[in-house]
């Protein structure tokens, strides 16, 4: 067994492999003398421990990720059900648009439900009276305020899919999940237009300054963190929240950190043109970790 060949093979399949070991140098330094390295590197026990450590935290099963997505889609679908049933939406274009979005969320629920089963898992469930559903006591009385929740849910959905897509690399689930992701972005854009806001997230968004909705635009976890979620009749795992690395806020101006290279400052760091902070922030949507999305300050707080 050749340690270095294994590393090479792994790097072919997973270019991030060397980042997973705190660093290549650290790995080799930790091995002691050349002789010790040679002896250790041929030990299956050593390799097992090394890789277990390197890949810890990325061990979510596809069924975990699908159930997480299904949780959010059930929440959205039930929100729109209540939104339509509340009878406040003006007839015509607005009612039609919300109806279209509801049919999309229902299609996402159906797809993800089947995908969990195909992957060998138990799908989370929800209905108007049990399981995963929007907390009816939180539905505002007016159309304008109901539409705010729609915007928060859609923008959060976009961030949530983004936050976990990388875990689906190498699976057939990546592409369909991204096809859902960009549809959610279209929903978000339309809801924002209905609210007289810009279709993209901008620093000047009205809800960014609204105390009730602010959390959706920021990052981090307010309540206790968790790694398992028991909802809708089943339990699934989510990655542990890393408090040292909360997701960037939507007002973030830096993008593209890779390996040891720092992110580029979009406003002044990508060429001769200087860009305004509002445009630099709007040109990139930001991800959210699962623990952040399911936190009580965000979508988790909207569950019944």
């Amino acid at each position: 067994m050749n340690f270095f060949n294994i590393i090479d093979l792994l790097a072919e399949a997973d270019p991030d492999v060397l980042d997973r070991f705190s660093s290549r140098r650290a790995v080799f330094n930790s091995l002691g003398t050349v002789a010790q390295r040679a002896a250790l590197a041929t030990s299956p026990l050593f390799l097992g421990a090394l890789f277990q450590k390197a890949y810890a935290g990325t061990a979510s099963l596809p069924t975990d990720i699908l159930n997480y997505a299904l949780t959010l889609e059930l929440l959205e679908a039930d929100f729109y059900r209540q939104f339509l049933a509340a009878g406040q939406i003006p007839a015509g274009a607005a009612f039609d648009a919300i109806t279209v979005i509801k049919t999309h969320e229902d299609a996402h629920v159906a797809y993800l439900h089947d995908a969990v089963i195909k992957a060998g898992g138990t799908p989370v469930t929800g209905s108007s009276t049990a399981g995963i559903r929007f907390n009816p006591s939180l539905l505002p009385a007016t159309y304008a305020d109901q539409l705010k929740y729609a915007q928060v849910l859609e923008d959060t959905g976009v961030r949530a899919y983004k936050g976990r897509a990388a875990e689906l690399i190498g699976t057939d689930l990546l592409t369909p999940v991204l096809q859902i992701h960009s549809i959610e972005a279209r929903h978000a854009a339309h809801i924002r237009t209905m609210r007289g806001q810009q279709p993209w997230v901008s620093i000047g968004d009205d809800l960014a300054a609204d105390a009730n909705y602010k959390a959706a635009y920021t990052s981090g976890v307010a309540s206790s963190t968790r790694t398992t979620v028991a909802l809708g009749g089943t339990t699934y795992g989510i990655p542990a929240f890393n408090p040292a690395q909360p997701s960037p806020q939507e007002s973030n101006l830096q993008q593209g950190a890779a390996g040891t290279k720092l992110a580029l400052l979009i406003t002044t760091g990508i060429g001769s043109t200087t860009y305004l902070p509002d445009d630099a922030a709007a040109a990139f949507d930001e991800p959210l970790q699962a623990a952040e999305v399911l936190d009580s300050s965000r979508a988790g707080g909207l569950l019944a």
């Binding site: 960009s182 279209r186 237009t193 949507d285 991800p287």
Partner: peptide, 14 residues
Amino acid sequence: AGQIVSVEARHAAY
């Protein structure tokens, strides 16, 4: 790419 594509989708919807 994921951070860019959703902005493109917002543009497309608009």
